[in-house]
């Protein structure tokens, strides 16, 4: 009995030892020489492997950083300035601070603003739907509402609002990796400056249809009237192909355009609620949407 035990233990120990030696030599033989700094940089990375930097993943980004001469063309949107600072310190580079960005959904075609004209009954992806036809509303530029952006977001920063049928960006979670901007077949989502105190002004519409057509399809469409461009003192607004666009680098957040827009297509977010404005002044614009602050992003 006891010999059995001794024999078993001994043979297994010897086997284990032998294999360990073999493993050691194999590991030596197939050792890959790598820049040890890659591991250091990779350890700094957030590890989301989202590809938002343009590289295949965090390790690929780390490798690119160690090989690069400077970090100007490399930026980790997820880690942001803090991470890039650490990477620069580790590698002995200098980095300039970049303004934080956030994904912005540029469509306000809620179920109310943009009535359905037919019912889509196919594969529930935006890609399939937009490849098939112009969409289930009168607007063929707006959000098709199947949530490809939600599916592609690695950070849980996007969700579909069941009431509006539009995606909502969670500013806290959004890392501006840009995955959603690529996933959206309509190109509605844009990365924009987060702005001071997270305040932003943007045109929440991308419809290139002529004013009347766009308005007919959606109450909140940009009709390309150009009023906003005229009122802007900073030359930040351009109107092209019947749609206005605000350059966030030029915009000084005066919000004049927001008040000027006849359809409420220009949104401002995170501004403090307006002090009860003296009623008589903007009389004709009484129906101006007041839900700006809470509609799109929270």
């Amino acid at each position: 009995m006891s010999t059995t035990i001794i024999f078993t233990v001994a043979s297994l120990s010897i086997l284990g030892l032998l294999l360990a030696v073999v493993l050691y030599f194999v590991a030596q033989k197939f050792k890959v020489e790598e820049d040890p700094r890659i591991d250091i940089v990779e350890a700094i990375m957030p590890g989301a492997n989202c590809g938002g930097c343009g590289q295949a993943g965090c390790r690929a980004f780390a490798e690119a950083c160690t090989k690069a001469d400077n970090l100007d063309s490399l930026f980790c949107p997820v880690g942001g300035n803090a991470t890039m600072k650490k990477v620069a310190d580790a590698l002995g580079f200098q980095v300039a601070e970049k303004a934080p960005m956030v994904a912005v959904v540029r469509c306000n075609g809620t179920c109310e603003n943009r009535p359905k004209t037919n019912i889509y009954d196919g594969v529930a992806t935006c890609a399939a739907k937009s490849a098939l036809y112009s969409g289930d509303t009168g607007c063929r530029y707006g959000c098709v509402g199947c949530g490809d952006c939600v599916a592609v977001c690695n950070f849980g920063a996007l969700s579909m609002d069941p009431h509006t049928g539009l995606p909502v960006v969670d500013e806290e979670k959004c890392t501006a990796c840009g995955a959603c901007t690529k996933a959206c077949p309509k190109g509605i989502i844009e990365l924009r400056n987060k702005g001071p105190k997270n305040r932003r002004v943007f045109v929440s519409c991308v419809s290139k249809d002529k004013g009347a057509v766009a308005r007919k399809a959606c109450k909140a469409a940009c009709i390309g009237c150009g009023k906003c461009a005229k009122v802007c003192k900073f030359d930040a607004i351009t109107v092209e192909n019947n749609v206005a666009y605000i350059d966030f680098n030029k915009c000084k957040l005066c919000t004049k355009c927001v008040d000027e827009c006849p359809t409420g297509a220009i949104h401002k977010v995170n501004f403090p609620p307006k002090p009860a404005a003296p009623a008589p002044a903007p009389a004709p614009a009484a129906e101006k949407p007041v839900e700006n602050n809470n509609n799109q992003e929270k």
């Binding site: 992806t125 399939a128 490849a131």
Partner: peptide, 9 residues
Amino acid sequence: IPLLGTIRL
């Protein structure tokens, strides 16, 4: 399963 819908894309 909407096989063709996915495959076509």
